[in-house]
Write a protein that binds this DNA or RNA. Structure first.
Lengths: 199, 199
DNA sequence: CGGATGACAGATATTGAAATTTGTCATTCG
DNA sequence: CGAATGACAAATTTCAATATCTGTCATCCG
């Protein structure tokens, strides 16, 4: 069977949708465009995704999951000092978001739309990220190098305090050259507070 | 002379413009509306403000300056513990912004528009706020209760880290009840790091 | 029979002509 | 004379007609 005759799967639709979104952006991409790219009728797309919103969410989920997985590598690296891991993880989060905003502006715009609509996908993404952060803080507490009475709450505070460096509403700021130094200043301030008192 | 015959001053125009903005919002308020509210021709308004944008900025400046002045009171209260002042100042900043967003939504929207356009007025407002913060940090360093090698940089980090609690792009979050606890968590984390090591 | 189709109704977006607004300036008024 | 006016051109917004899109479903096809 040739690729064009391949059966229509959710996966193939997601691939095509991502491409269409990348090309046209969230405002102009239509379900009809996606169907045309696949050489099927738009009705067939609706067999796999109940609404256009669901399709958009599914694409964004895949896209966000790629980031989560990359960061999970840093978070789970049990061998390394938790404090260094925390710094690197937050730096990597910033770099990942910044790269996406610059390199994939249309998909990033799609993501930003979902953030404003506060859908489940974004919520889950943020929950996954804070869970990873919580894991690092817990490791630090276990190793005795970080101090926190409530690692989950601490992780939340870390995440909120670094919003300027990962929240899409600040994407415009990420082009300024001073931004890296600003992240370092915030990291220094927070990690100083997290470090366990020397006994 | 009766009030309606009073001479046309920049101050009277600003007053009328604020009222028109409050009523119609930034999207629908026109210079003609302002002129009508004052009983003059719109040409007269242009004698005092070169463009509509300048008028909008001037109104927003007045409005922002009211916040700055209120906070300056806390910042300058030399008698009190700098750490407590820092906490109170950041809490007051949050409360002030939240109150404006809730109580004066149209003027707040005008302000948000200016933030996105990154005009001089907003820049100056942010500079004034960080200057106040810097002053508190310096007082703490002088008193020996706070540790900072570079109070201005520390103030910048504090301001960025609390963005979630004063930046208009988060205004939607300020209605959630958990928000207060989130601010406290961030404050705790940062102030722990700022406190001078016990010797 | 299960998956794909395309005609269809209602919702949404696009378009371009008309109306309004911005900003200027020659003129008027006190 | 200096401040206010309102006619005006250019830019912007509004609005309604038109076109496109979303989501459904009776029908078709392998």
């Amino acid at each position: 069977m040739s690729p064009t005759t391949e059966t229509l799967t959710a996966e193939r639709i997601l691939e095509a949708t991502e491409e269409v979104l990348r090309r046209h952006g969230p405002a102009k991409a239509t379900v009809v465009d996606v169907a045309r790219a696949l050489g099927v009728s738009h009705g067939s797309v609706y067999r796999h995704f109940r609404t256009k919103a669901a399709l958009r969410e599914a694409v964004t989920k895949r896209w966000l999951d790629r980031t989560s997985q990359a960061l999970a590598g840093i978070a789970a690296d049990e061998g390394r000092d938790p404090e260094a891991r925390l710094r690197d993880w937050l730096r990597a989060l910033f770099e990942a978001k910044r790269r996406k905003a610059g390199h994939d502006p249309e998909l990033f715009a799609t993501y930003s739309v979902l953030v404003d609509e506060s859908g489940t996908v974004v919520e889950e993404h943020l929950a996954e990220l804070t869970a990873q952060l919580t894991g690092i803080v817990e490791a630090g507490v276990a190793a005795g190098s970080l101090a926190s009475a409530d690692p989950a709450a601490t992780a939340g505070a870390l995440f909120h305090a670094t919003g300027r460096f990962h929240d899409p509403c600040y994407a415009g700021e990420w082009k300024r050259p001073e931004i890296e130094g600003e992240l370092e200043a915030v990291l220094d301030l927070m990690l100083r507070g997290l470090r366990a008192p020397v006994r």
